[in-house]
Design a binder for these strands. Structure first.
Length: 401
DNA sequence: TCTGGGGTCCTAGGACCC
DNA sequence: TCTGGGGTCCTAGGACCC
């Protein structure tokens, strides 16, 4: 008995969300970027922009050169993630076996609900109708249906934008033969290069390569490649619980490279607060904090600390990451970031110490403000721009570190 | 006036304990 | 004094994804 897996992928997702929200952007080439458009890349190009040659991950500078009419638009990651929750809720109407894979993709196991591949096609069409009702005409999805996740995703790739395809078990080899090696999720530029070095350029050639040779070159990944060449996916099935995050992180590319500690502290503190807030919202604490620095020459460095007392407090996260970053400031920095991992559910026990208990209740009050009015309703004094900080008074939670 | 920001998983070496 | 192997935890970095 084969499983029936759906892979659903939103087309030009970030761009579509903005076009749905703003009629002025519809039918136009737009590119969604990071905060600072000058130093950013195109995270998502609209269909119109793709037609004019704009590609994902192209620098804005290059994209503008290729397509002068391109409208650049700074994206809002929180909004995109909120909408993702809405479409996953729609999928839940059809099956409890929903595994979000990225901000715009999910896997659904509909083996029990659909019974066969014919039923699956029908169900996929119903899902598309529901998405349209709920999200509007401008956010559209491609759907691939196959016996496992790997092949469902590959099938979906072949029908972008806005298609639907079914690949039955006996058609898997045929599908692979029509695709390039790096169409497969899991074969990136490095692996592709190493395959080429072995004279493997197609899935037929990959199948012809003895397993032992692949294992010698790729270690445990060799088995995965061998299986994938036959359309087999040894990974776990669709896991509805994998949506629990394993880490929370934020990073920021500075408007200009700098070694100025005051500036870097301010940004890092802001990032730490954002990470802390999301963790408290989700009721988790972290034992491991990783800080990242990218230098002007694009080399980067990351270091991590594992702490005995798990935390979700922005102040703790900031102190730990600043201790990592500070000694690294020997040349100009382009990006700073931190992430928190080794997460556990917060038992939320009040601290034994009065000072910490006070801080916990302050955080609690600020969190409920933030929950109600959105992120950005408060900021620490330490993260305000300097000119504003000098003028601000009263509502102000500054700590010298 | 190149090159964002959010993630996941794996590996390999060293420390430390038994 | 010299020796082995297994297990776990920690760390840095690399590969991949969108």
């Amino acid at each position: 008995m084969h499983r029936i897996i759906l892979h659903i992928d939103m087309n030009s997702y970030f761009a579509s969300v903005e076009q749905q929200a703003n009629p002025f952007l519809r039918g136009k080439p737009i590119g969604i970027t990071g905060k600072d458009q000058e130093r950013s890349v195109v995270a998502t190009a609209s269909i119109e922009a793709k037609k004019l040659g704009v590609k994902t991950a192209m620098s804005t500078w290059e994209a503008k050169k290729i397509c002068p009419s391109l409208i650049l638009y700074a994206g809002d990651p929180e909004k995109y993630s909120d909408i993702m929750h809405r479409f996953n809720a729609i999928y839940q109407e059809f099956t409890p076996h929903v595994e979000p894979f990225s901000v715009d993709e999910s896997f659904l196991d509909i083996t029990e609900e659909a019974e066969d591949f014919f039923g699956a096609t029908y169900m996929a069409q119903m899902i598309r109708t529901r998405l349209k009702e709920e999200l509007g005409n401008h956010i559209t999805a491609s759907i691939g249906i196959a016996p496992n996740k790997l092949m469902a995703k590959l099938a979906c790739e072949t029908v972008k934008p806005s298609g639907l395809t079914v690949v039955q078990p006996e058609e898997l080899i045929d599908l692979l033969n029509r695709c390039k090696l790096d169409d497969l999720c899991g074969i990136g530029p490095r692996i592709l290069k190493r395959l080429h070095a072995l004279d493997i350029k197609t899935f037929a050639e990959l199948r012809a390569c003895p397993l032992e040779d692949l294992q010698r070159e790729f270690k445990s990944y060799g088995l995965w490649l061998h299986e994938a060449a036959y359309g087999r996916d040894s990974s776990q099935g669709v896991n509805a619980n994998s949506s629990d995050a394993k880490s929370y992180g934020h990073s920021y590319t500075l408007p200009e490279n700098t070694q100025d500690q005051t500036v870097l502290k301010r940004y890092l503190f802001g990032l730490a607060d954002k990470v802390g807030w999301r963790m408290r919202r989700d009721g988790v604490v972290a034992r491991r904090i990783t800080a990242h620095v990218r230098f002007g020459d694009f080399t980067s460095h990351s270091e991590q600390r594992t702490v005995n007392t798990p935390t979700a407090d922005g102040m703790d996260l900031f102190k730990i990451s600043w201790n990592i970053v500070k000694p690294l400031l020997t040349s100009d920095v382009r990006l700073v970031g931190l992430s928190a991992s080794m997460l556990t559910k917060n038992p939320s026990q009040p601290s034994l110490f009065k000072k910490e208990r006070n801080m916990q209740s302050v955080l609690c009050a600020l969190d409920s403000l933030q929950h109600r009015y959105g992120t950005g309703v408060w900021k620490r004094g330490a993260t305000l721009p300097l000119n504003l900080k000098q003028r601000s008074s009263g509502f102000h939670f500054d700590h010298e570190v």
